[in-house]
Amino acid sequence: MSAPPPLPTTTHHGKGAAGLALLVALALACTVAPLLNDGAGPLRADRDPVLTALTDGRGSLSFALLSGLLGAGLGVAWSGLAIALGDRAERRLMGAAARLVALPLALLVPLGVGLTGGGLPVLTALVALSAAPLVAGLAHQDLRALLRRDFLTAARAAGRSKGALLLHHLLPNAVRPLLAAGAIALPRALAVESLASLLGLGLPSSVGSWGGAVGVAARLGDGLALVPAALLLALSLWAFHAVADEALRLAAEGPHGGPSNGLPGGSAPDARP
């Protein structure tokens, strides 16, 4: 089978690139922030609110990355398992995902932390679980669309083995949409962790979190401490959303700039809690 001729790509990727650049800049700033504060280790700097917010950002960003990747992996595995186990199991698994997405899962995170006494592993698992059904739904939609495509039917008709189909046709074409579906988990993880920390039931204060800093400042009426943390959190959420939007747009365009799955792409589902 010959590959389709490349089509000219007309989409501009400015928003996604800006989001990625902003994330890199924030990560760098959060990494070097403690060095600017007397060169000491992890600080609870009560002096400069901007440096304090940047120091807190290390906890928020690294946790969002960790739990977001875990949630993305769980969601993709969920959808892959659903398809692999056959029609009946697929209906049940994806029905469960759809029902879970309709519930206020974000509130289960502070609840779970409060009931179990907290701890980073529990929080990570809860945040990942709150993102997984959304990723599973998207990944399942993409995988199903991929399985219906003509080149797979043609490869099956040509008598290719299941292994060859999976290795040479399905996996290379599935990587892009699955990565895009997984990207949704990152803003979701950051938002859910921030909500939990804002309520006092998220990351421990020793780790530091923008949500926690915003919550404490709001309770104390300390605007000076609230503004930098809130601004950095808002910017990070925007950047994560921009990257996820761009990933979905690229996945919808396909590798050659044309529509890859017949689905309208370009806008990520709402990943807010």
């Binding site: 938002a191 949500g211 919550g215 709001a218 809130a230 959420l237 809690p273």
Partner: peptide, 20 residues
């Protein structure tokens, strides 16, 4: 502004304003 303004962040700003 959508992704910049999650409800919980606006809630914190509202709480700050109420304290004032």
């Amino acid at each position: 502004a959508g992704p910049l303004l999650p409800g919980f962040l606006l809630a914190a700003l509202a709480a700050l304003a109420v304290r004032s």
